[in-house]
Design a protein around this nucleic acid. Sequence first.
DNA 1: GTGAAAGCGCTAACAT
DNA 2: ATGTTAGCGCTTTCAC
Lengths: 342, 342
Amino acid sequence: MDKDITIYDIAKGVGVSPTTVSRALNDHPAVNKKTKQRIYEIATQMGYRSNMFASNLRKQRTNTIGVIVPHLNSSFQSSVMAGMEKVATEAGYNLIISQSMGTAEKEIANAKTMFNSRVDGLLVSLATDTENIDHFEPFFKKGVPVLFYDRVAEHKQSTSIIIDNVQAAYRATTHLIEQGCQRIVHITGNLRINVYAHRLKGYKYALIDHDLPFNESLVIVNDLTEEAGIEAASQILAMEPRPDGVFVSNDFCAANCMNALKQAGLSIPGDIAIVGFNNEPITRVVEPALTTIDYPGYEMGEVAVRSLINYLDGLSDISITNTVTLRSELIVRGSSLRKPQV
Amino acid sequence: MDKDITIYDIAKGVGVSPTTVSRALNDHPAVNKKTKQRIYEIATQMGYRSNMFASNLRKQRTNTIGVIVPHLNSSFQSSVMAGMEKVATEAGYNLIISQSMGTAEKEIANAKTMFNSRVDGLLVSLATDTENIDHFEPFFKKGVPVLFYDRVAEHKQSTSIIIDNVQAAYRATTHLIEQGCQRIVHITGNLRINVYAHRLKGYKYALIDHDLPFNESLVIVNDLTEEAGIEAASQILAMEPRPDGVFVSNDFCAANCMNALKQAGLSIPGDIAIVGFNNEPITRVVEPALTTIDYPGYEMGEVAVRSLINYLDGLSDISITNTVTLRSELIVRGSSLRKPQV
DNA sequence: GTGAAAGCGCTAACAT
DNA sequence: ATGTTAGCGCTTTCAC
C-alpha cells in the first residue's frame, strides 16, 4: 500500500515545475516535445496515475454520465446500456448507472444521487408512475443536460431519443389487417408512458384508415409480464366473437400469450395472428417465430451518449435537435404470415 | 447556472466556522444538537449539495465500486447488474460499469480506467481469453479489493463468488441418465473459462459414476450463440449412432439447438432429451419448456456487492472467506422428462 | 463544543 | 516554453 505518485514527484524527478508536468500529461501543445517525452517516461516509470478527484475538483467537470433506467434486467434496456457503455468508454467518460425499479419514488432518489455525484449529463428512461419531472429541475437550473430516451417526457430544455411508436404500431396493425385480420386485440402497458400511449394511437389510426371499427374492449392494458401474457390469452379466449389478431407491445408477453393460445387449441397464425414488439432474441425461438418490430436498443444507447457528449463538447446544441427519431422496422415471421408476402 | 453553495456559505449564514458545518453535515457527535439543527435547515434552504470531489480528494476514498463484465446485454449478466445496483445504492455507493466485450484487451483497458477512477473495490467477471490477471496487480498492490464472480480466477488475494458448476453439471447429466439417456452430448463454451471447464468435469463425473463411457467426440465446444446452437444440432444429427440426450451450458443455445432438432423431425424429449443452463426466461417459452439449472444471477450480484462493502467497512476479512458458493438448482421441465418424476 | 490552519492533487491565470 | 501563484471544497489535526 505505497503512497501515490503525484505530479510534484514527477516534477522533482524530471527537474521541471508541476505545471509543466500537468500540461505535458494533458498533451498541451505548448510543451517542448522532448520535455513531454521525458515526463511521460518518468511518469510511467514511477507508476503515476492521475487523481481524478483533484482534477475534477479543479475543473468542475466529472467526465461522468449518469443513467437512470427502470430495470437493468430487461433485454431491451441491457442492449441500450451496452451501446451507451461502448460510446462512453471510447470518449473517456464513465457511466454511473442506477435503476428506478419503475417507481417515481426511486427515480427521484436516484436523480438526487446523480445530482450530488455532479454528473456532466444525465440519461433517463422514465419510470411508470412518474407524473412530472420536477426532480430534474435542479439539472435544468444548473444547465446540466438531461436527455430522455425510450420513455420520454416533453420538456423544452431536454432532448428525447425515441422511435416513432405511432408509426411502428400503425405498421404492425396494418400488417395484421393485410393478413386478413378483422378483430384485432391490442395488448399494451400503462398508458401514462408515452411509448404505450403512442402505440395505442398507431393501432387506432391503422384501424380507422382501413375502415375497421375501434373497439375499446379489444384493448388490454397490463404490465406486459410473463403472467400478464397468459392472463391476456384467457381474456382473448373469452371474447365473443373471437378475435383473429393480436398486437402486443412486448415480445416476451406476446410469446407467452401465444403459447397460452396454442395450448387452448388455437392455431397460430391461422386462427389468430400475432405481432410483438422489440425483436428480442425470444422471437426467433418460439414457434411459430414471432413477427415483431425491430427496436434498435443498442443503437439508441449509442446515439444517446453520442448526442450528450457532442453537446458537452459544445459541438451541438441539444435544444435545437429536440427529438431524435431512430428507424424501426417491421419484421414479418411465421406468427402472422397467412398469405405469401408481396 | 448559479454558483454552487459551499460549506463556507452555510458557515457565514449560520454564523459558525466551516469546520462546524462540515462536522454537522457528517453528523459528528461533538456538535451541539441545536447548532446541527440550524445548520441542516440553512443548508437545505440554501440548496446545498456536498462536493464529492473535494470530499473524496480529502478522504482518499470514493464510495464507488467498479464492475467489469464481459457483456451487458446478456440475460444473466443484466440480472447480476440489477442485484449489484440495488445493494450498492442502498449502501450509498455508486457503480461504474464497463464491459470487456469478452476480450482480454478491453478488460485490461477497463482495469486501467477503474484504477485511475480510484474505485474503492472492483467486481470482475473475466473475459474469455484472459490468460492471466496481471492487470489487476495494481489493485492488489494498493490493497484495493478485487472480487471475482461467475467467471473467476484463482488468486490468493481475492474472493470468488460462484456456484458449484461441477455439481450443477453433475446433477443435470445424472438427470438425463435417470431419464434413460445413454449417449449424452455436452455443448459448452471455451474451456479456458472456469465455469465451462467445471461443467465439463461434472458431466464427465456423472457419466463415470453411472458406468457410462466418456466419449470425447460427444463434447461440442463453441461460443454458445444462437447460430452455434443450430450448428451443433446438425453435428448431432450427423452422429452415429444418434445421441439421445444433450446437456447445453446455456439456455439460449439450448433452445436454438432444440428447435433445429425438432425441425429435423426428432421428437423432444422422446428421441433426444435436452437440459440447458441458467434458467433464463426463454426456457419457459419454448416448446417443450426447457429443463435447466437455476442460476441465481440477481442474488449473485447482491452477494458480491454486499461482501465487498462489508470488507470495505472492515466488517469482514475477504481473504478468509476466499470463495462464496451460491446454491443452484435443477429445474425439470418438458424437454427432458420422459418418466414420471419421483 | 467550536475554530484556525493546513493540505489533499490538480489546473488556469498570469507572469516571464 | 516554462514557472509562480492561487484556489477548487472539503476534512482533520491541533488548539482553545
